[in-house]
Amino acid sequence: MSAHQDGGPPTAGRGAGDRAPALEIRRMTVSYGARPVLWDVDASFPAGRLSAIVGPNGAGKSTLLKAALGLIPADAGQTLVEGRPVGAARDRVAYVPQRDAVDWDFPITVREVVEMGRYAPTGWFRRVPRRDAALVDDCLERVGMGDFRGRQIGQLSGGQRQRVFIARALAQQAPLLLMDEPFSGVDARTEASILELLAALRDEGRSIVVVHHDLGTVRGAFDHALLLNVRAVAEGPVAEVVTRETLARAYGAGADAVGRDAGEALSWAG
């Protein structure tokens, strides 16, 4: 994987050819009431790579993304985007929320949704400038949704909706993409083609972090992984992270002990 030669701003204080991590999370601790959901999680997602956050249900995967972005309050912790605090680097991050967080009956077309990616650079009170129209259309084409631009958003399939969201994130022109469970409720073929798209985006130099629930595809498709179970269990190149031993530590081994989730995980990891 040739992650080092691509574009993006060089960061001072790093070795030659090396970029600051795209996303760095330090000591992130979040609790709901007295129950800790994330405990002292350190993670560092390299630039120009396709990274996955994996872990069992209730491991705090989505919470980690939301807390990193400041969408939910954290008890402690710090997030750096390209070495800068996340608050100062909003324009460097594009977030793709879980699809059930959105009102699909909303009277809005595919193109209008993608155009929202241009809202932040446009600023308050102003209309999205005309010169952005070409960019929006490009992003739609990029995800293969060019022919659907006039559709109402609710008339799309799950996979198509996900593509629209990715197009919106692309329109933000941010080097870092954070995606929350993009493949839940999407069929296998669509998942594969979206993964292909993400890989292509990665090869262009973008950094992508995906909250992912399917260990089966992690190995083949991702470069880097964080295995999470309230704490960070393991982090690093996928081959090192997704092993029988680490999975056992995160999911618990033996279908008899924890059940199907873990059993599946192991059978996939082989």
Partner: peptide, 19 residues
């Protein structure tokens, strides 16, 4: 217009872009 549209359609996304 666009702020109202974005916050009504997708509040979480709106927050990430500072609206």
């Amino acid at each position: 217009w666009k702020e109202l549209k974005a916050t009504t359609f997708d509040p979480e996304f709106s927050r990430t872009i500072g609206i």
